[in-house]
Amino acid sequence: MKRNPIFHIAMSLYSLIYFVPLLWMALSSLKSNQEITMDPLSLPTAWDFSVFAEAFSAGGLGKYAINSAIVTGISMSGVLLFGSMAAFAFTRLKFRFSKQILALITLGLILPLQSYFIAQNALFDYLGIKDTRLALILPYTAMGLPLAIWLFRAYIQNLPKEIFEAARVDGAGDLRVYQTILLPMLKPGIATVAVFTALSAWNEFLLALVYIQNDDLKTIPTGLLTFSTRYSTNYHLLFAALTIVTVPMIILYVIFNRKVIEGLTEGAVK
């Protein structure tokens, strides 16, 4: 395992494929439209960061971010709470139809979104919840549940049975066991599920596109698309918006990279 400079040089060069586009995006936001169209490869001539404030206020990016945060936060909480509850019942408690119900929910792991969104759209129309945040929260929660239940089940199965039995002997009811014993032990699983559901909800596009027309309720992906159509020729403003959306996520990701990578890969592979 000797140090090998060629390896690191080659890998660093390859990393450029990832950095250059993102860097170009960030730098272009500091250039004028004229500079971008005439010489897209040049560096900005002036480092004027006011464009970010302009993009933020003109495009309502704050609004979109808040919407994304609300929708993601509620969906994720719902998935964690309801998913862990159901997984506990499926794994540790005997009851009628448990196999059948679990099998139905497991179906959700393989079904593509397109299998059901037409009728879901009609149903939401009928219920009058389109153009409300509920129209995103409901499906995002439902879409996150199968995986959450599946992952939580695997975690619970790995916990020693004796812990639960001992609690029983001490006279604790099942709900108490769930709350005081299971939840704390489930922490690593919760982190994985949380990352996976949160990122899926944060980035979801198709349902957000179909269900939300009201600009005040749009989430980041659709809001940004609206922004990019509206300012499609105001390049530096558009790049500034893209940068604003990207940078916080990259910072969060760099801080929590292990959890994020684990959460996303485990979520997908299970």
Partner: peptide, 8 residues
């Protein structure tokens, strides 16, 4: 790139 919105 995996964690950025595909739209972006």
């Amino acid at each position: 790139p995996v964690m950025l919105p595909l739209v972006v």
